[in-house]
Design a protein around this nucleic acid. Structure first.
Length: 320
DNA sequence: AACATTACCAACCGCTTTTTG
DNA sequence: TCAAAAAGCGGTTGGTAATGT
């Protein structure tokens, strides 16, 4: 029964990827497209687990990935989304198409968490862990008992959540990377061009080949500058309503978050995600200082609204 | 210059959800 | 319908570069 096993655990290589491995993976994906990862190790000869291949592709080799410093804009957006969605990095990443969930997660853990903590410390000892606290509440594992309750409740509240998110995301309509955030553009499978992945790998190799370019994949050469391949070949599956995105076979949280922000008809996952958003927002930290930071620099209208609008979604007690 | 500490990030691990035979 | 495996996600770890002593 079931499927055949994906790959042998024996003889599977671990650790940093070499340029050669990257090349093999990239050329394979260029030819066949992403997906069907279990076939990748066998077809390419890579001594890697399919899971590892997928991760390498999505986190590093995928075209359109921007590396390097996060802009203030991105930073603020992440803070907002984290407050709204909790630690659903894939969901958050779907609104920052050029960033990977891993990247965002790392950035949150290494930079933003501290930054927020500092800010909250600056305004007194209210609140615990700030966004992280919200994360623990909203992003953590929730009792499955709550699921049905969320669904029912959030089917009705979803519109409010969407509106709040839209408000937050439409603040910088002129900003190119953010411009399509409110309505994440679906990338129909097949229309995706993988040409830019060659650029990626070329850059990669260029860096490696350069003296002092570092060893292995540890510190990618791209880290120094943003590899702004404008090909927004966002591989993340999205609920576009056009049905095409289903090809990548993901109905999990990342896509679900998009659904939440876009189409209420995108099934119950939508509600779950937005539900957790509400829950996360409920445990949001004291925001006054955060607000001023977020409001600063043209994040302007609607930001506080985002925070406050979401809170009324539900009384925490109603979830328990 | 040598060592210790801190910061960062790629990759792995383990779990949950979804898909498939 | 069910079990097994794939796919996906979030948390954590390990290696390395940067910084401090």
């Amino acid at each position: 029964m079931g499927r055949p096993p994906c790959c042998d655990k024996v003889g599977v290589k671990k650790g940093p990827w070499t340029p050669e491995e990257d090349l093999m993976l990239v050329s394979y994906v260029q030819e066949h497209g992403p997906g069907n990862w279990r076939a990748v190790p066998t077809n390419t000869g890579l001594m890697r687990c399919s899971k590892s291949c997928r991760l390498r592709w999505t986190n590093y080799l995928r075209p359109g990935i921007k590396r390097g410093n996060f802009t203030d804009q991105e930073e603020k957006l992440i803070v907002h989304l984290q407050a709204l969605l909790g630690n659903r990095w894939a969901a958050i990443a779907s609104y920052l198409p050029e960033r990977t969930d891993n990247d965002i997660k790392n950035y949150w853990n290494t930079h933003l968490k501290k930054k927020l903590k500092k800010m909250q410390a600056g305004e007194g000892d209210r609140g615990e862990d700030g966004g992280a606290g919200a994360a623990a509440g909203g992003g953590g594992k929730r009792p499955s008992v709550l699921k049905g309750q969320w669904e029912r409740r959030l089917q009705t509240d979803i519109h409010t959540a969407r509106q709040a998110l839209r408000d937050a995301l439409s603040l910088e309509p002129s900003s190119a990377p953010l411009a399509n955030l409110a309505e994440p553009q679906p990338t129909p499978p097949g229309s995706t061009t993988y040409a830019s992945s060659a650029e990626n790998i070329a850059r990669l190799l260029e860096g490696w080949l350069r003296p002092g370019g570092g060893s292995g994949a540890g510190k990618g050469p791209e880290a120094s500058g943003s590899t702004s391949t404008t090909a927004t070949t966002q591989q993340r599956p999205q609920c576009s309503g056009e049905g095409a995105a289903s090809a990548s076979a993901s109905h999990s949280s990342g896509a679900a978050a998009n659904k939440a922000a876009q189409t209420p008809e995108c099934s119950t996952e939508t509600s779950k995600m937005a539900g957790s958003s509400a829950v996360a927002a409920l445990s949001a930290p004291a925001f006054s200082m955060l607000e001023s930071w977020l409001l600063d620099d043209g994040m302007g209208h609607g930001e506080v609204g985002l925070m406050t609008d979401v809170v009324p979604l539900g009384d925490p007690s109603e979830f328990f």
